[in-house]
Design a protein around this nucleic acid. Sequence first.
DNA 1: GTTCCAGTTGAACGATCGTTCGAACGCGTG
DNA 2: CACGCGTTCGAACGATCGTTCAACTGGAAC
Lengths: 207, 207
Amino acid sequence: MAGPTRDQKLDTLLSAAAKVFAERGYHETSMRDLARASGVSLAGVYYYVQSKEELLYLIQSRNFEAVIAGMRAALEGVTDPIERINRFIDNHLDYFVSHMSEMKVLSHEAGALQGDYLQKVNDMKREYTRALMDVLADVEREHGPAHVNRRVAAYSLFGMMNWIYNWYDPLGDVGVELLSQNVCHLFLGGYVGLPVSDATLPRSSAG
Amino acid sequence: MAGPTRDQKLDTLLSAAAKVFAERGYHETSMRDLARASGVSLAGVYYYVQSKEELLYLIQSRNFEAVIAGMRAALEGVTDPIERINRFIDNHLDYFVSHMSEMKVLSHEAGALQGDYLQKVNDMKREYTRALMDVLADVEREHGPAHVNRRVAAYSLFGMMNWIYNWYDPLGDVGVELLSQNVCHLFLGGYVGLPVSDATLPRSSAG
DNA sequence: GTTCCAGTTGAACGATCGTTCGAACGCGTG
DNA sequence: CACGCGTTCGAACGATCGTTCAACTGGAAC
């Protein structure tokens, strides 16, 4: 059997780097730390990556792309605005919880990138934010004017969801399903003002 | 008239440091940057502060103390749980918006401290979180069981509020009052399930 | 005038940083 | 065996980091 592909080794490196970046922070982590964590020499890291910043960029962009792709798939064919929001939140939190290190790096090290790297990630951020704002506009079109400014609502939701790396323990007594249900309740209850019943939260685990 | 007190010069140093830390990040900022920003020599900084980490600790602890003190004062004598939550959120956002740099440093550089410094800030964090959880328990005692897990609700609210340094512009078209009102609406509407009317949001600017 | 001390400084310390480079490796192909 | 090539490495580069220290200032106290 053949050894690991070059792409596979890069993935391994990115995964190890994400874990160390998440624990110690991007700037506190040295390339020597990454070499040690991924089992190659210091110079060996530079065979797969041009710079430390590219390493951070690859972690951020690849995972952000995955989040956006998952969001598009989750929303495809779904017309009910409330259900679209549910799916948006579901997709975000599911991916976040199952890729904690990478998503913490994406959320927390946003300001560490510069130049083209920063711009490309910011473009994705704009696209993703726009997608949420569009769904919120749909909700308002169907359920009347919201009680909360749309932009404030959008960033508050992002705040709720992206803050979880500060407290959430995937192995704790709060499962991902409960977390996602609660965030949906919290956001929809406050945004559309509806006492969101379980019936309006048709979740995969429901029934 | 006498020149500035030693404490005043320390305050100036802390203020300048908070601004630079907020813009560039704690680890990306060098002591030489801080010296330049505060108008003293590199060695001069060390006359007021023992280390770079103590500088960060002083910024975090002093402002956190102020937030907690403001919270205590805002809640004093107020018995209605909904109103207590309103005041909790008000105090947090008011202080956050009017001390953006310091609060970004407090929120974003939480993991940069170590040892005793870290423990002391974590103690404050625990106390502050406990205070919010107690108010949430009061709400549930008065308005029946909540629709959302209390711990998830608490950290979601912190997420909403602490995330604002990523997007909120104090000089933009969304004022602090609107921001605070919206966050109250968003949180209370989702947590207690009430269609929170303006009447139940007795704000200082109301009337 | 002399002493004293809080305040400030330039210059230097050792350590560590991201990155580079030439050499060596393992291995399939002639 | 010899060759080429993708992969890995030890060693070193210059730069920058946080911190220290002896020396200097200027004004109050005697």
